[in-house]
Design a protein around this nucleic acid. Structure first.
Lengths: 213, 213
DNA sequence: ACTTCGGTTATGGCA
DNA sequence: TGCCATAGCCGAAGT
């Protein structure tokens, strides 16, 4: 990881276009080629580019130009004055990964093991059930053997409603799914979201925040 | 901006829960209190916390504990060995902001000025037209005086279809909007997205990439 | 290669 | 403050 502190200006062209006037900033170039340019505020870089770019250096009288180019993007950093330039070996090969807990995928797995948390008499059928428009998180059966499609979220917003609606529309055209039920299961459901889902005949179930316990 | 390179391990608890085993990483603490912990890969930090936290330092025999705490989150960084520790004054007060061009908001403004880019005889009525489920980007009238709701995107994906569908459903219940047309205007529309929109009777218009010219 | 979707998404705008 | 929608969203997994 190379960390350069310098007075620099930046032009980006690619998915959007941005310009950045000269000032002192920190430029971080990682081992995989990813680059980010930071001011002293917030965690998001002002400009950046992911791995897979090629760096071309051009020296001028008063400044140095670093041009990072990929097939679709270009990031040009003009260095007016370098304040600091250091390099650290962080041994990315042996660097342990971040371990996440309480992800949506884990909640989905837990619900597959505890279908009764979604409704009395519910039984688990399968995860990632394929509809004509992609896989829905969970397929269950209710106490009458009727299929139930479930969209699992940590926090559900209105877009979750359209997501499950999409799967329901598709599933209803499959034999045996004419009377399929639709459900959103989430630890956090916004009031407006549950109101919207009720109007669309989609059920909402709130999962206790301490479900993993 | 303080940059510490150290062998460290991290525990985060808050919106999710994560753990990170010991390894050499770069820890960046910004002037506003934002902190991020980086390995040598990609631009995203492994762990981070925004401004508004309080740092408590505890020294032990073999290590030092940095505990960053806010009302809802906690980030605990255990420093096993400090490799480098530097501080830079970047004068955030006088640091110029990033200037963006070609944003969706700018495209929306341009389309309001050039409604004919969306259809012959189209006239502009208003931006951010309020429906019962929130504001839709543009309201126009076609050559017959029929209302047209437009969802503006730089790149349109399938979710754009559901977004405009939501506004259409709501608008159709408003007097004078029974025959409202729905449209997606974007610089980039994915093939699958336009196919989906056609099935839903939503029109697609591709805006030339050089619209600002 | 393209698409889809989760994310401790972050961040700004508006009710 | 909460909610909504954008972002150069990023990054990963599946197709």
């Amino acid at each position: 990881m190379r960390i350069v502190v310098a007075v620099c200006s930046v032009i980006y062209a690619g998915r959007g276009d941005t310009t950045l006037a000269p000032a002192a900033r920190a430029i971080i170039i990682k081992d995989d080629g990813a680059i980010s340019i930071h001011n002293d505020k917030s965690n998001k870089p002002l400009n950046y580019m992911g791995k897979g770019n090629k760096l071309t250096i051009t020296n001028h009288e008063e400044h140095t130009l670093w041009s990072f180019d990929s097939s679709k993007e270009s990031l040009q950093v003009t260095l007016h004055e370098v304040i600091s330039d250091t390099d650290f070996q962080l041994d990315i090969e042996n660097s342990p990964e971040l371990i996440r807990e309480g992800t949506e995928s884990q909640l989905q797995a837990w619900l597959a093991e505890h279908p009764e948390a979604l409704g009395r008499g519910f039984t688990f059928v399968q995860r990632e059930f394929q509809t004509g428009v992609g896989p829905v998180d969970l397929l269950l059966e209710d106490e009458n053997g009727k299929p139930v499609l479930v969209e699992v979220k940590r926090t559900a917003s209105s877009s979750s409603v359209y997501q499950i609606k999409k799967y329901l529309d598709s599933a209803q055209e499959m034999p045996g799914f004419e009377a399929v039920r639709g459900m959103i299961a989430a630890v956090d459901i916004r009031p407006r979201t549950s109101a919207l889902s009720l109007r669309r005949d989609i059920e909402c179930v709130v999962i206790p925040a301490n479900w993993r316990a």
